[in-house]
């Protein structure tokens, strides 16, 4: 474990050095991200301020959904940024070099590119989330524990998604669109998935399962989930992780080296 932490640290430092080579790009990127975040926040705020509620959720509750989405989404991008660069590893044949190394390939292809820019964005998101959590006043230790448990479950599902993308990358070399479709799908839950009509709502909640990832933690916090739904979401999280690991194993068995 200590060895893996050391490796992770080395990869992260390396990733930071690469980012630091593009200082101007970093500034543009941060500016763009900030503008996008602020404008969508403004949109949600102006909408809910005028309508008083959004599908039954108050202004503060809607913003807790929004910031929970941002925290989970940013954490996921921060941890798994290397997945976005995976296609090149496959098509250039460099993946061979990763697979023969004496450590688990995930430390390189899944976690090997900590995104410092997302780490910088995470601070303000967490601060705003805490502020609005305090505003809704449902912060008993039971609610908060359930919220955190379901956030961890969300991160497990997100990890599974990224491993599936890696597996599909090995099988088909298609990574770029698959990962962006994941991003676009998850964006559907930037507001409570209750806005969608059936059967789309069930589809995005249980089949994809973006709703469980992004919406369930807040629903747990608001006492809107019974134990059956909580257990279903935890089982789904575990099942998606097991499925992704199985698919990764299958993909490696089928892998034929590309490139030179």
């Amino acid at each position: 474990m200590k060895r893996y932490l050391k490796l992770y640290w080395l990869f992260s430092v390396q990733s930071l050095k690469v980012v630091w080579q593009h200082k101007t790009g970093v500034l543009f990127f941060m500016f763009g991200k900030l503008i996008r975040f602020l404008m969508f926040l403004f949109f949600v705020m102006i909408l809910v301020k005028n309508t008083k509620t959004l599908v039954g959720y108050t202004f503060n509750e809607t913003l807790v959904f929004y910031f929970t989405f941002n925290v989970i989404d940013t954490l996921t991008q921060m941890l798994f940024r290397e997945v976005y660069r995976f296609r090149w590893l496959v098509t250039s044949g460099e993946l061979d070099g990763v697979l023969v190394r004496p450590y688990h390939p995930f430390i390189r292809v899944l976690l090997g590119g900590l995104d410092i820019l997302d780490l910088l964005m995470l601070g303000p998101y967490l601060a705003l989330l805490t502020y609005f959590l305090l505003q809704i006043g449902l912060t008993t230790s039971y609610n908060l524990s359930l919220y955190l448990l379901l956030v961890v479950n969300s991160l497990i599902i997100a990890t599974a998604f990224h491993i599936v993308v890696l597996a599909l990358g090995v099988l088909t070399t298609e990574v770029d669109h698959t990962i962006m479709i994941y991003r676009d799908l998850s964006k559907l839950a930037v507001v409570p998935v209750d806005i969608y009509r059936e059967p789309i709502r069930s589809l995005v909640t249980f089949v994809l399962p973006i709703g469980i990832m992004m919406t369930y933690p807040v629903k747990g916090l608001l006492n809107m989930l019974n134990w059956n739904l909580i257990i279903v979401s935890l089982v789904l999280g575990l099942a998606s992780l097991l499925f992704s690991l199985w698919l990764w194993g299958r993909a490696l068995k089928k892998y034929q080296s590309w490139g030179s």
């Binding site: 909408l47 599908v55 799908l185 964006k187 559907l188 507001v191 806005i195 969608y196 789309i200």
Partner: peptide, 22 residues
Amino acid sequence: LWRVRVILSLFLTFFLWSAVYQ
């Protein structure tokens, strides 16, 4: 796949505004 991505963005705004007018 690009078209799938584009239509997903439409879904968000379409349903969000539909919910507002409920």
